[in-house]
Amino acid sequence: MNAYARRIREIARRLLSEKAVDAVAGYRAGTVPMRARPFVARTPAEAGELTWTGFCVGNLAKLAIGLPGRVAVCAQGCISRNLVGIVRENRLARENLTVIGVPCLGMLDARKILAKVGGRMVTGVREEGDAVTATGADFEETFARGDVKRDTCLTCRHRNPVLVDEVVADPVPETGGGDGDRIIELWERKKPDARFELFTRTFRDCIRCYACRDVCPLCHCATCFVDRSRPQWLGKTQDEPDVLTYHLLRAFHCAGRCTDCGACESACPLGIPMRRLTAKLESDARRLFGHEASLSLDAKPALAVFSPDDPDEVFS
């Protein structure tokens, strides 16, 4: 067992036995390789099931919203920012929240590992420092963590939690090294026709299971716009305009609040890189409004505030 997991269990056990919290939201081992599953520990014994691996790619802030009582949440940089966001949005009271801060070296992308081993069946993955070793029935291959990290973790700018009550490890270097604006350059460099072509191709495989929406802690409407029937904003079909409109609006609803946790991409059964859209919105929020989402409890989201000097670039 790795040091992070050991420390998380320790903290969780203590918090639960001292009755400082009613529940600890974390992960436990998955039932299949390259998976970890969200888990809520409520007793010191259950705390022993908690773990931490590179496959903890969900968003525990989402899970925490629905839990009654005082809750502790294991949170990397991005998730801690989501927790800041939901505290700000009054969906979780700060006094009911204990953040177990997990400095993060980047989460892993099972798809990348599978691609690396040429689609062979992976039965286990070991993480040792910067080395990630995938094993199968007749092979064992080691990769640099950077080669099999999720895209979002390559461009991460806040790997240490911004809100911490309990610390799992010493802080790590703050950035993943990559530049978030590079994601959008892929499209921005192209002409509008080519951009639309890339846009449609990117979302062609979408089956509208809405996992990207449902995994995201930013979504909080009682009735999502896609579920409204009076008026019905968009069709329920697989027609391109319906699918694309869903993704445009979903991304837009996250504008100025997205912490780029990447849970949407990790949850997608078809590996659609929907961060192409949210990255553009967050990049614009940084460029135009000097805003980065949920870095502190006093900061309001970009679209909840304004400045008289905001750029007038699209208005005439």
Binding site: A194, F199, L303, P308, D310, V314, F315
Partner: peptide, 27 residues
């Protein structure tokens, strides 16, 4: 003021995905 922020981001997003810029006008 809120509209300006919101619609600026939205216009840029539509432009980014290849909807012709000239189809939208904000005044």
């Amino acid at each position: 003021m809120h509209a300006r922020r919101r619609l600026t981001l939205f216009h840029n997003l539509l432009d980014y995905v290849g909807i012709e810029r000239a189809r939208l006008l904000f005044t």
